[in-house]
């Protein structure tokens, strides 16, 4: 399996996402997060948040617009018919609340062959309007060989 690695190190355009209260609600309910801190601004403020807070994994919602151009980049050149999402990790720092403007930048961290499969690893870094990091993600897609 011959892998094209020219895209390693490539950074993709930053993507801005404005976090909304109803979007947090929609995500929280789909996942079964029923604590009022995710749904009710009063309860969230009482718990010390600026506004309703997003469950940590809501980062996939505000990062998606940054990841798509990286994953579909022709220079990265993944074969989608043979691709699976193999692994995922997130490191969280500042909590994200309704009203936050989050900017996420994705990059291609590595493209390597192991056991006849292509491992495509992307990294994302998200910051809020004050420049504080909210999450750092590592996204691993695996493309099986012919």
């Amino acid at each position: 399996m011959e892998l094209e690695t020219a895209a390693v190190g490539k950074s993709f355009p930053p993507f801005e996402y404005e976090v909304g209260r109803e979007k947090i609600r929609e995500y929280a309910i789909a996942l079964g997060f029923d604590d009022p801190i995710y749904l009710d601004p009063g309860a969230a403020r009482e718990a010390g948040f600026r506004n309703v807070v997003a469950p940590p994994m809501f980062c996939v919602v505000y990062s998606a617009g940054a990841m798509a151009p990286a994953i579909f980049d022709p220079e990265v050149g993944m074969d989608f018919a043979r691709m699976v999402h193999g692994a995922q990790s997130f490191d969280w720092s500042e909590p994200v609340c309704s009203g936050d403007l989050i900017t996420t930048t994705a990059s291609c961290a590595s493209i390597e062959e192991r056991d006849g499969k292509g491992f495509y690893v992307f990294e994302s870094v998200s910051v809020n309007g004050e420049g504080a990091e909210t999450v750092r993600g590592t996204w691993t897609n695996i493309v099986r060989g012919e």
Binding site: F33, D35, I37, V53, A54, P55, P56, M57, V84, H85, G86, A87, Q88, S89, F90, D91, W92, P95, T138
Partner: peptide
């Protein structure tokens, strides 16, 4: 993991999985 942290999302520092 968040439930384990008494439901406080600020206490979840990292999560890593394999699908």
């Amino acid at each position: 993991a968040t439930d384990f942290a008494d439901g406080d999302p600020r206490r979840l520092e990292s999560l890593s999985v394999q699908f």
